[in-house]
Design a protein around this nucleic acid. Structure first.
Lengths: 208, 208
DNA sequence: ATGAAAATACCCGCTTATGGGTATTTTTTT
DNA sequence: AAAAAAATACCCATAAGCGGGTATTTTCAT
């Protein structure tokens, strides 16, 4: 199930997208926001897999919101909307980490395509965009290391089956520290507890 | 560190082995027993990695003790001793699951070799034994499935990162049942908690 | 040198896991 | 039919993990 949040201050757009997604079994809209502040509140609590985000929004704009979400919850995919394509806004959104970009007057089916593409780990930029805009700087290349050095080290230990207290002993840290790191790792990767964490650590031990 | 228990009612033998193992950094003797009952008490509490076991012992003999240990804690390696090689006893020990067999008048260094071999997962039978004794039935071939069907199924779920309560829901069991199975799996495999269990489940998912 | 990111470590309340049992029922094997 | 093994489920006490926080210090890049 792909959970989606929409941030958009024009109700007509929301209605259109809602109608479109209603018949997609795999997708569920878990909330809407009319400005950037509301969006952040929504995203932090519901943690959707994808955010469809208008670039122009009251209070906090799409670029700032994208930066904040990518910092706190980097696993969440962001697809940007804009009414008329503004080169600079697009560039900034992509630099902020957005995986997708759509122009509002493109057919709504594009939304579906974009959602499925970003969920596969790819990017999806509207065809009308001049590729030279993001001269080599797509979200995938930008995608920096999500986890810090300590976090990666601790994840490695977790992948070895070590307990929090064992890791604390090895690193001469307090248990609290390791727990904080563990919590941050779980948050950043969008996991759901030790089971998934350990699974992630063991299986993907080569790319974090 | 290889922990070893010795079951032997002749003190001289114990002394000899102790002297020999004293200078092995990797090996530590964690207890001695003078009869089968004492041995079982010791093994259940200390859970050594290897047991050096006399076949002839008071109260519970080596064959019965081996069967009991292999049932409860099948990961523990057992090396049998006997004073003069009795064909039948050897066969029975091997049938009971002993990974090694030594005759007492063989050089003590053999003990070391045997310990290291069985810890590598191999068997070690004294060269004086006629191989036809165990006509194809070495411990390795006997090694039956340690885990039961339910245990294997549950281990698979654990390997998928599922929690105890999730597994209980899937199988329509109570949480208690899954916990019991989990405990039995941990005991049988000689693991030390969820970390090692999960690691085992994910990595060796094809041979249990 | 100022600000951001990372690393450290604690709080609370709650849930889950662990490691010891025991006990009953069902299935399988002999 | 009897014995052994497997599956079920509970008890207890302790330990660990989880998911919210907050807060301080250190490191790093601008």
């Amino acid at each position: 199930m792909i959970t989606v949040a929409i941030a958009e201050d024009h109700q007509s757009l929301i209605d259109g997208v809602e109608l479109l997604l209603r018949y997609e079994e795999e997708i569920r809209i878990i909330g809407m926001a009319n400005d950037g502040e509301e969006l952040l509140y929504l995203v932090r609590r519901k943690q959707p897999k994808v955010v469809l985000m208008d670039i122009r929004m009251p209070k906090i704009d799409g670029i700032a919101a994208t930066k904040i979400i990518k910092k706190e919850l980097p696993h969440i995919k962001i697809i940007a909307f804009s009414m008329f394509d503004q080169e600079d806004a697009v560039r900034q959104m992509i630099a902020a980490g957005a995986e997708g970009y759509l122009v509002k007057n493109s057919p709504l089916e594009e939304v579906l395509k974009a959602i499925y593409e970003v969920m596969k780990g790819n990017t999806y930029y509207d065809a009308t965009i001049d590729p030279s805009f993001f001269s080599g700087n797509t979200a995938q290349q930008i995608k920096k290391q999500v986890l810090s050095k300590s976090e990666r080290e601790i994840l490695t230990f977790i992948g070895q089956g070590k307990t929090t207290s064992e890791i604390a002993a090895i690193r001469f840290n307090s248990v609290s520290t390791i727990e904080t790191h563990r919590k941050n790792i779980i948050r950043k990767l969008g996991l759901k507890g030790k089971g998934e964490l350990l699974r992630y650590a063991i299986e993907k031990k080569y790319d974090f």
